[in-house]
Design a protein around this nucleic acid. Structure first.
Lengths: 160, 160
DNA sequence: CGAATCTCAGGCGAACTGATATGC
DNA sequence: CGCATATCAGTTGGCCTGAGATTC
C-alpha cells in the first residue's frame, strides 16, 4: 500500500512539475498559490497546515514567491507575531494561468474514477493523512519521560 | 483529490523518516533497500522503476548506501552496460532492523482499512500511477507549435 | 549506426535541525 | 512566566538538466 501511494503521488507530482515548468513555478509552489487563491489572506501557519508543509519550508517558498511579486506578506492586523499572506493581482493572474496548465491532469484524474469512487478514494486518503498526522507518538513510550534518544547510527546529522 | 493524495503521502513519508532517523537512513533509501530485499540482484534501471525514481537519483543513493557497506554494485554478468546491485549481509541486517522500525506504521495503515478496502485503495492508486506514468504527452494547445514561453520568472534554470 | 545503461558535473527547491527575536 | 509565530543559519538528500563514456 505504501508503495502504491508513493508511486501515485510521485507520478502526479512529476506531471504537475512538467506542466508548470514553462512558468518557472514548481508543483509545491503552485499548491501554495492554490491555497491562497481560495482562502485569500491567511497566516503562514495556516499555509503550513493547508499545504502539508512546515514553517521553514513555507517561509522559503513565500520569499521566492514574494520576490517574483506573486504574493505579499503583511503584518497581521491584530496579532503582531503573525504575517498575513495575500496574492497580488499578478499572483492571481499567475494562478489562473497555472490552473489552466494543470487542467489536463485534473481531467485525467477525473476520468479515472466514477464520482462515488472518487469520494471513496478521497475518504481513504483522508484516513491515512489523519492517522499519520502527528509525528511524535513513536512506538517506544510508556516507561518514562520523553526520551527520543538516538540509537546509534551516524553523526546524528542525518536528515529526517 | 490531488491535495488528499499529497497530504496522505507526505504524512506517511514523514512518519517513516521519523521512524528511521535513528539509523541515519531516509525513507527513500529504505525504499531502495526494501526493493533489494525482495528482489535481490537487480539492475539500477530496475530500481528506478520499482522505486518510482530516476537514474541519477538512484545512483546517488546507491553511492551513499555503498559507502556504508549496505550494498555493492557489481558489473552485470551478461550486459556490460548494466550494474547488478545486491544487498550485503550487513545491508540485509539493516533492512530487517529498519523493517521492524516501520512495523508500527504498517500496522496503523492496516488497521485503517478492511481487507477489501485496502485492495480497492491500492487498485485506485494503481490507476493513477499508471495513467500519469509518462511525462511527455502534454495537453498541447491545438492551435500552433509549442511555445512554452516563460512568463517572466527566473533564468529558465528553474528546476522541473 | 542508433539505442540503452550508467557516470559525472552542476544546480536548485524542499525539508530538516537548532537557535533566536518578538509578541501573545 | 510559558507559549506561539516567525526568522535566520546551516545542512542534507532528492531530483532535475545536460553532457559524456561504454556497451549492446
Amino acid at each position: 500500500m505504501a508503495m502504491s501511494l508513493r508511486a501515485a503521488y510521485l507520478a502526479m507530482h512529476r506531471q504537475t512539475d512538467a506542466a508548470l515548468a514553462g512558468d518557472g513555478v514548481t508543483a509545491d509552489q503552485f499548491v501554495v498559490l492554490a491555497v491562497l487563491a481560495e482562502e485569500d489572506r491567511v497566516t503562514q501557519q495556516a499555509l503550513v497546515r493547508r499545504a502539508s508543509s512546515d514553517p521553514n519550508t513555507i517561509r522559503a517558498m513565500l520569499v521566492l514567491l514574494e520576490a517574483r511579486g506573486l504574493i505579499v506578506r503583511e503584518r497581521h492586523p491584530t496579532d503582531g507575531r503573525a504575517r498575513s499572506v495575500v496574492l497580488t493581482p499578478e499572483g492571481r493572474r499567475a494562478h489562473a494561468r497555472l490552473w489552466a496548465r494543470t487542467e489536463g491532469i485534473r481531467q485525467k484524474l477525473g476520468q479515472l474514477f466514477r464520482p462515488d469512487e472518487a469520494r471513496t478514494l478521497i475518504e481513504f486518503l483522508g484516513r491515512i493523512a489523519e492517522d499519520l498526522k502527528d509525528v511524535s507518538p513513536e512506538p517506544l513510550p510508556r516507561n518514562g519521560p520523553r526520551r527520543t534518544k538516538s540509537i546509534k547510527s551516524p553523526p546524528e546529522g542525518a536528515r529526517a
